[in-house]
Design a protein around this nucleic acid. Structure first.
Lengths: 105, 105
DNA sequence: TTGACAGGCAACTAAAAGGTTGCATATTGT
DNA sequence: ACAATATGCAACCTTTTAGTTGCCTGTCAA
């Protein structure tokens, strides 16, 4: 799960995921168009990181490589990790409020 | 939002959030106990990063500083960011499946 | 079959991240 | 008042990360 969080920490990589969500199965060169002012190799490295985090799956078709979004890891983070914070969310909020009010006692 | 993702990218910081979720309003020294083999200053730096991402709020009480979880940013990420991927989740999944099946045509 | 196109690999650089040590400052209990 | 406690600040070091350039390999189409 650490790999997923690390992968999501970069704006360019989140943008790549956005692009794939809008239009799944794109090639490296297509994805490069979404990241102007960055070399193909840089984008390629980002894609490798996303693959290693299992956030995308790549399939070679002839001389090109198609990239597909894998929604599973994001879903797991939502369920397992964010979920537990959501469960105690209102609690934490009221504790924070009370602490802020007690501030100038 | 970038600050939040960056803050969440580190295991130690996620652990600190976990600790606060279990026991809100802890001091720096208390939190240090949860990160053995790391100096107080290192933990302090992590807390600053979490504060800057608005994931926690710190309140000075005398010579100590109490740290409270702020559940809002995590909630926003769940709603605004993860939400949009969840909406196209099953779509992406079936597209991925189909692409994998087409692989050895 | 050869040139153009899609992508991979490796070495290198610059900047950011994570951590440490040492010292300074403020608060509290005796 | 003063020693102990709780935290802050700054300089420094090391590793990781993001990006580049240059070159190599495989595939397709004329």
């Amino acid at each position: 799960m650490d790999l997923v969080f690390k992968a999501l920490a970069d704006e360019s990589r989140r943008l790549l995921l956005d692009r794939l969500r809008a239009d799944n199965g794109q090639t490296l060169n297509q994805l490069c168009a979404g990241l102007p002012g960055m070399t193909r190799q840089a984008v390629s490295k980002h894609l490798v990181i996303l693959e290693e985090a299992n956030l995308i799956a790549a399939i070679k078709r002839g001389r090109e490589k198609l990239h597909y979004l894998n929604p599973v890891p994001i879903h797991e983070i939502a369920e397992r990790w964010i979920g537990k914070f959501e469960r105690s969310r209102l609690d934490a909020l009221s504790q924070l409020k009370q602490a802020l009010e007690r501030r100038d006692e």
